[in-house]
Amino acid sequence: MNRSVLIGVLVFGLVVYGSSCNKEDDGNDVEFRVPSNFPSPTYNFTSNPVTKAGFELGRKLFYDPLLSRDNTISCGSCHIQTSAFTHHGHGLSHGIDDLLGKRNSPPVMNMAWSETFFWDGGVHNLDLVTPNPIENPVEMDLNFSVALDKVRNNLDYKKMFKAAFGSEEVTSAKFLQAMSQFMNMLVSANSRYDKYVRGEGETLTSDEVEGLNLFKQKCSSCHSTDLFTDNEFHNNGLSLAFADSGRYNITLNPSDMGKFKTPSLRNIEKTKPYMHNGSIGSLESVLNHYASGVKQSATLDPLLQQNGQLGIPMTEDEKAKIILFLKTLTDTDFLTDRRFAEF
């Protein structure tokens, strides 16, 4: 770490410490809570409850380039907090040796509610996500058992495993559970929209409210609930020939060709570029895509071809209002929460 940054952090820490006795600022509050406007989580917390020590171990692992072949890439390299844990500015993920992956890195947030993971939903338990990027030759390129050995040989980790799980022994199950504890804590539920729907005194402008209503009519059958995803797979008309077969890779069912998991739209303002392949660069272009760029193919979602018309009809004014609404989903508390930060 750069020295001036370190000093800056120290000074900042002192200021915070000196100026407030407020619990929230000390970064010590580690408890998984279900926001009142969210459904129940899907993650099984009984076999892996979040503890402070487990969360801290998970955070250290998440930000540790030790888990890559040449010690250069950590999970945090592609999942950056200020971009809602996506790889800001990268259409396709960018990993070890400057290799490009084949997909856009999705936000790691509200994972505890996810039914499946990855754009094609190939993995169905958060615990089982982690070995994949570690071993992926274009991501961290390290054999999972070698990664575990590297962790085993590190004194700091021994202490942290002991604190989190009562024993210094580093097993793959504990390693994966610690990583899940950190990721499960990455809950984004404090946007202006959230405070508005929970009646916490926040107001939206009339344009934003109109945008919300338009969104409900036109978008929320797929981007549903306050998680803004139905956890299902759809083809939203990005292409005619599928460079990436998406869900088909998992089910081998031709009717799943070119379908991808509906992404959440929380913090969408911060997660450019968009779509599984990062092919759309701005929210304006996303709205233009839905209004007039949808391409016909055998598996195109029926909602995007109603009454013999491709796409979702929208006027310029409507598109602009939907975008205004989407920006109310930006959760600054989440993007700047010091508990989730690397340093």
């Binding site: 076999s47 070995p131 999972f144 793959s172 899940s180």
Partner: peptide
Amino acid sequence: DASQRTGDLDVATNGDMYWMWN
């Protein structure tokens, strides 16, 4: 979940008898 994958089912040590993408 991970807590169930021990012994011969440990994905770190089972000799790549596991597809991580699904």
